[in-house]
Write a protein that binds this DNA or RNA. Structure first.
Lengths: 247, 247
DNA sequence: ACTTTTTCTTACCCGTGGGTAACATATCGG
DNA sequence: CCGATATGTTACCCACGGGTAAGAAAAAGT
């Protein structure tokens, strides 16, 4: 729990860094506790119906205490949103780091993203209204969303280029897949019949089976390294400019 | 503004019914005008950020005048939602009336539903928060949503039964398809690059190709006689042709 | 022990916006 | 032309909730 900070034992035990660090950590923990309480309430009742008094009450403090950690209600909302965005970002970084065909990467992303949608911070990505944020924060959030969307399209485009995915419009295919995934955040219930892993597994299959070049077959962990291209023509030629976000 | 009531000149002008009817119709037209203005503002800015004064202002009246037609803000929201629900219901009734395999019916539903998501009242189905309604109205809305979801599952189940759809879990398949469709209501923009019919066509293919037993092949354009926009420009670069601004 | 800094509470402000009351004005049947 | 009904306006109420000021209480530093 408390990993000893790199304090040389030769130093007097009165090192000012330890208290400082522990204090900062305590503060961060409290800050995060606020976010956990807030995100739960926001998802449960909706941002506008949750009062800061309620958030504070759940933490056994009073409303003004919250202002020690956040500038205002909308910043709390934004930080919740950011927590979710960071989760997605780390997933993407992880996948980018690994190898595999475009289809393989897409499947990894679908699987992880589906599981994320079943978490509070993950769901907040799609259930919070960016218009509740300040313009500055909203811009950050929009940029984040755009990067995520671009990742879906990039994997799909890469898949059509390497032959693992049939030719299709990456933009619309990404919309369809991301839409189905995002919607999980709206219907998933902790006390429901479906477990997050069940959902993730099933969606991974269902959302990509229509795209794969290799016809239906068990998609094992190992994606065949050399998928025979049934479309031996210059598949890359069909690649449409996807990168260009017009906005 | 005041379209002359269709009064046949042959009838005696003293018929009590015509004035009554025309009056009631005028009232209904105004009521609907309120809904059109409201749904637009709600989608644009979000329910909680729209004031009744704004709605009234757009109609060149004042806030209390709205109370001649609605009991309160939440009822306006509900009526907007209901307009969308009725559109879906009529689509379903139409499809149920016709024949075809489970897959065929599913495709018709996907196509019509996708197009609906690109309309104001259609989008309101998925972008309004049911928790803003009274408990009574929310119950009605939930029931409606449930019926729609059940229809998706029924078509899928019917498809697996008649062999047009491969075996799968109807519940999760319906979630995936409905999710992708519902998400249209969140990203579609009138001034975007994609026309509603393009979206509907593409989603019809993309969302069902993984389910069909018969492998890929052109699914012929036996799309139902939905009044398609004459925007038959084949290229994806559909111009930002957006006709009549209802304003 | 003392000061200083951080944290939290009590008490309050006040803009906002849904909703209402009272009154004015068309509209209609007769 | 005249009441009755519908429709709309001006002026107001007031609950709600985000945000702040001032100071107590608890840690931390010395």
């Amino acid at each position: 729990m408390d990993s000893a900070p790199p304090v040389p034992p030769s130093l007097p035990s009165s090192s000012p860094w330890l208290p400082f660090e522990s204090r900062r950590r305590a503060r961060d923990e409290k800050r995060e506790a606020v976010l956990r309480a807030a995100v739960q309430l926001f998802l449960e009742q909706g941002y506008h119906r949750v009062t800061l008094n309620e958030v504070a009450e759940r933490l056994n403090i009073t409303k003004p205490a919250l202002y020690n950690y956040f500038r205002g209600k909308d910043e709390i909302l934004f930080e919740c949103w950011s927590m979710g965005a960071e989760l997605v970002d780390s997933v993407i970084t992880e996948i980018n780091g690994g190898g595999g065909s475009g289809l393989a990467k897409l499947r990894k992303l679908v699987h992880a993203y589906a599981a994320l949608m079943a978490t509070d911070f993950g769901a907040s990505l799609v259930r919070f209204d960016l218009r509740d944020l300040t313009e500055r924060n909203a811009a950050v959030a929009r940029a984040s969303k755009k990067r995520i969307d671009a990742t879906f399209r990039r994997y799909i485009a890469a898949g059509t280029a390497d032959g693992s995915i049939r030719p299709c419009d990456p933009k619309l295919a990404a919309f369809a897949i991301a839409g189905a995934l995002n919607w999980i955040g709206h219907w998933y219930r902790r006390d429901g019949e479906l477990s997050p892993s069940e959902i993730a597994d099933e969606f991974t299959v269902r959302l990509t089976e229509g795209l794969a070049t290799e016809s239906r077959q068990q998609m094992t962990k190992k994606t065949p390294g050399a998928p025979q291209r049934r479309n031996s023509g210059r598949t890359t030629a069909g690649k449409k400019r996807t990168g260009g976000g017009t906005r």
